[in-house]
Design a protein around this nucleic acid. Structure first.
Lengths: 358, 358
DNA sequence: CTGAAAGCGCTTACAG
DNA sequence: CTGAAAGCGCTTACAG
């Protein structure tokens, strides 16, 4: 327990700071409680084997002192950091709301599990990073966004000794612990929803088809057509246009689709749905009257209305995805077994972009 | 140095993991180099006072072994974590590209300074958090986004003993170490740019005027009018509309402004610029022909084109802002004095939304 | 220039 | 149920 720190502005407008932080250690708690360090430790960590009255006394004193265990010491002694890392491409975080949503959700999930979250931005850089991440001993494990896959050092992490959980899917490997949103059925549901609104000619703007999720969503689009086959709806391949999950690509694509007479568009994600809506609006094509639009992700709905029309979308359950991923990671870290791949169904949230008040 | 960890899929499709990570300690390096731990430590940390040949030998062996110091031990022994925290509102990260850009930039800056970055999402929750952040001993200091200010626990951090640097400006306090973009002159430059393009009636959609940056940018808009006073350009108060920095608010605002006959719009940020462009497009008002638009932040430019028109914008120097903030924080942590408030000038990047090829 | 030793604040068998 | 003691892997005066 030392002198509290003082901060003040110096006359010349600079700022200085002195003195260490007021620190209460486990020893303080033990001494003031009249027990050993071991017992105090047990109380603090909710471990069994302490007489109830002793436990209560120690706890009260700890609370009163505002004791917080030093994480570095805890980490060193226990070999556990109580911190997890998140690997996500920096590009993703910056240009795509999906990345921000995942980061946000994992951050919240970590907090709920009483874990710190370190951010590891996946740049295109070479390899030393991996070793740093691994050997620093600063984190217990990693949540890796599948969007980060493909970078050599990220793939290297998957084979390292560090526990990892993937959010999303690996293009090839099936041996990884992963959590993913269900893509096929939910995309089919979105397409079917447009049929239900009376759309006869529904096109789709897909994500980059090198990506698993983009392909699966396209599969769902096809599946819905198969199921609606008897009502004369079949896939017109000229209405399947590949985008790149970014807004700009959908502007082009939507123009093409409008030119080919669609009355509905299933976009591979919300960013592209927004691009499509933009293009339609610019062409004087009304939404949802002339063309009904539905997206995927849920990042474009809510606050971010476009014109007066809210976007219909297959909304990813970001919080559940993140919570599941963090829980799985925790299980792996603590040596419990973990189911390999978890899939979580999203909800289709219907907004103004697809509902025709017939 | 122990057994490497093994991971394998079990027959029932689950995944298990066993064995500790292969660990090389400073002791290993010292022993194999035939020196003491102290000397090895000096070499590893580039401290003076080691004979060159010894230094080289130890270094080689450390490199060969792939030695990485255990951060927890280092932290515990030195009282320094080599990790900084970033406090940013979770809402900001999710809905506003500005938050993502800041996060991205601070992450990169931290890496450059060889620091880890912990994410502290500012929710609306009560107070314990502060103490956690402070006493965990997990971080040396905090970069706080000014957007997070206003939450009681964030304000509390500013008065704590933990070193902090603000990115942005505090509404009242001037005693804080902070880094901010220059708002007034740059906003004036954006407005003047529209005048230069021949705009006679330039309106503005401001951010929420409770915020300093929003007010400063409005000041810049006024300043440009003052300077252009002799050419007959004066502020028409009916062309000043308050938004909330979000896209939706600008859609409304732009309709109002178009109704009042503007031929140019200065938006308080890019999100609102995009909303305004959307509204204009929907109204059949062409950009930049009928209305020229300029934004602020640089988050809406680049990849994210709208229609075919790229957005002109006052582009924030995110990397420089972040780098400066992290460097300042490091200085404070290491006890060096730090200039109080740093202001960095952004660049006006002209795109298609404001250039009239007369 | 180099090393022996104490110590950072905790956890965790181990013995009572 | 409780405590004494060793140890996690480093840093850092201190003495040579």
């Amino acid at each position: 327990m030392s002198v509290p720190c003082i901060r003040r502005a110096t006359p010349d407008g600079n700022i200085e700071r002195s003195g260490p932080v007021d620190t209460i250690t486990l020893d303080d708690v033990a001494r003031l409680s009249g027990v050993s360090r071991s017992t105090a430790s047990r109380v603090i960590n909710d471990q069994p084997g302490v007489r109830p009255d002793v436990r209560e006394r120690v706890q009260r004193i700890a609370d009163h002192l505002g004791f917080r265990p030093n994480r570095a010491a805890k980490n060193l002694a226990s070999g556990r950091a109580s911190v997890i890392g998140l690997v996500i491409p920096s590009e993703e975080l910056r240009v795509d709301p999906y990345g921000a949503s995942i980061t946000h959700a994992v951050g919240r999930a970590a907090t709920r599990h009483d874990l710190g979250l370190m951010l590891h931005l996946a740049e295109e850089v070479p390899g030393r990073t991996v070793h740093h991440i691994l050997r620093d001993g600063l984190i217990d494990g990693l949540v890796i966004s599948s969007v980060a896959l493909g970078r050599p050092w990220v793939d290297e992490l998957l084979d390292s000794s560090l526990p990892t959980v993937l959010i999303g899917r690996h293009p090839r490997r099936t041996d990884l612990a992963s959590v993913d949103v269900e893509n096929v059925e939910s995309s089919a549901a979105a397409t079917t929803h447009l049929f239900d609104q009376g759309c006869e000619r529904v096109g789709t703007i897909t994500g980059p088809l090198g990506r698993v999720d983009a392909r699966q969503r396209l599969d769902g689009y096809r599946l819905a057509h198969e199921r609606a086959g008897r009502s004369g709806r079949v896939v017109d391949e000229s209405l399947v246009v590949e985008g790149d999950f970014r807004r700009g690509s959908a502007v082009e694509a939507a123009r093409v689709l409008v030119g080919r007479g669609v009355d509905g568009i299933v976009a591979g994600n919300d960013e592209m749905a927004i691009g499509a809506m933009w293009a339609c609006t610019a062409l004087g094509v009304s939404i949802p009257g002339d063309v009904a639009v539905v997206g995927f992700d849920g990042t474009g709905s809510g606050l971010d209305t476009h014109g007066d029309v809210t976007l219909s979308s297959v909304v990813q359950p970001f919080d559940r995805l993140a919570d599941t991923a963090v829980a799985m990671l925790n299980d792996i870290v603590e040596g419990r077994q973990v189911a390999g791949a978890v899939s979580i169904a999203p909800d289709l949230v219907v907004g103004g972009s697809s509902v025709r008040s017939a």
